[in-house]
Simulated assay, not measured.
Amino acid sequence: MSVVLSYEIGELERDILFLEQGEQALLERIETEHPGVLDQAREVADTLDGLRFRTLISDRDGTVNNYCGRYGTSTQSAYNAVFLARFAGSRVDHPILLTSAPLDNGGIVDISTTPPGSFVFAASKGREFIGLDGEERRKPVPPGKQALLDKLNGRLKIMLGSPEYETFGLIGSGLQFKFGQTTVARQDMDGSVESEVSDAFLAKIRDLVAELDPKGEVFRIEDTGKDIEVLLTVDDTNGEGGARDFDKGDGVRFLAQELGLDMALGPHLVCGDTGSDVPMLEAALDMCDHVYAVYVTQDEKLADRVKQVCAGAMIVDRPDALVVALNMLA
């Protein structure tokens, strides 16, 4: 297995440039690496200019932070922390980073470098969070479901401790025990694992979940191609009965209630980069019409989906464009 350190090295080089030569030198390097990114940033900044947002609800990785091959070493760069904190402090009443990653013990708070109190860190798709006041809160999980998740986690820990499967704990997201869900990598962004081996591991996890939950009432599996997410179900509130996945839209509604966000009062800014981030936008729009969206993607189908949900949504092709735009607005 090979290890690609492009994120770690690249972000360190950017930080050195930022700290020694200043912001303009950094922006020139970003534009050299990705021609046209500053034009995208200016377009977003021009559209949002003059607005103060009730909330910023944003995903982290791939949205306001460049992707890294390993979550555990995707430490936020200094320039990124400065740019985001500037925007949050000057333009947002309730800045929220909402991620699928865990909260701590290798989670978002451990790899973030923004000053304390700059953001609400919402993790596990919003099931748990640390508020601006530093207080931690979590959405309760029924004891029976938690016991089964604990059993699954124990089996996975043993499995990835064996030579046959230890690679999957070292790549990408690794093995993450979250609140109400568990994620285990089966591939990374560099394709370090042979596809046959990755697919066989996915089948092994499916068999394990089926063994523990033969009726399929407690767990749902989401396969992103890189990560296998095993999620505890929640009761369906659409009148159809049964159970469904907990998504980031559920997380937004939980945060709105717990933090007293009064989402009926806009405007709000929602940012994401994958299909799993679209429920955040849908939930915000269910509560308020005054919502702006910026999504980071080169996937035309995802861009079309986002624009169907929010007609005025803006699309940029990399996190740098969004991060620079937010700094321009600060």
Rank of each mutant, 00 (worst) to 15 (best):
D250R: 03
Q257V: 03
V184Y: 09
E196M: 06
D262A: 15
V184L: 10
I221G: 10
V278H: 03
E240V: 01
V294R: 02
I205W: 05
V197L: 09
D207R: 14
T182V: 15
H290E: 15
P214K: 10
D250G: 08
D227S: 10
M287P: 01
R253P: 01
H290C: 02
T224W: 02
K215Q: 12
Q187W: 07
R253E: 13
G180T: 06
S276V: 08
E240M: 12
A185C: 09
V184K: 06
D236H: 00
M189H: 05
D223T: 12
D245R: 12
P214D: 09
P267F: 06
Y295W: 10
L265V: 08
I205Y: 04
V230C: 04
L261E: 07
T224C: 08
L231N: 14
D245E: 13
D286M: 08
D245M: 10
G180D: 10
L259A: 08
E240S: 14
V294H: 01
M263F: 09
D262G: 09
E229Q: 14
Y292R: 09
D277W: 06
A185S: 15
V234Q: 07
A284Y: 01
D190H: 11
D213S: 07
R253Y: 01
V197G: 00
D262V: 07
L281T: 00
A200H: 11
V270A: 13
Y292W: 09
D289P: 15
N238W: 08
R244K: 12
E258W: 10
K248Q: 11
S198G: 13
T297C: 03
R244W: 07
A185E: 00
T224L: 06
S195Q: 11
L208V: 01
Q187L: 06
Y295D: 00
C288Q: 05
K248F: 10
L232M: 10
A203S: 13
V230G: 03
A256H: 08
S198E: 02
D236P: 01
E211Q: 15
D289V: 01
D213Y: 04
F219C: 09
E258G: 05
D262I: 02
A185I: 04
F254S: 02
T224H: 07
A256P: 05
G251S: 13
P214A: 11
D223M: 09
G260T: 13
V278Y: 03
A210H: 14
V230Y: 04
T297M: 02
R186Q: 11
D207L: 10
G242I: 00
K248C: 13
A283S: 14
L269T: 01
L208I: 01
L265Q: 12
E211K: 13
D223I: 10
L212T: 06
F219W: 09
G249I: 04
M280E: 03
V270L: 13
R244I: 06
V278I: 15
V294S: 02
S195K: 14
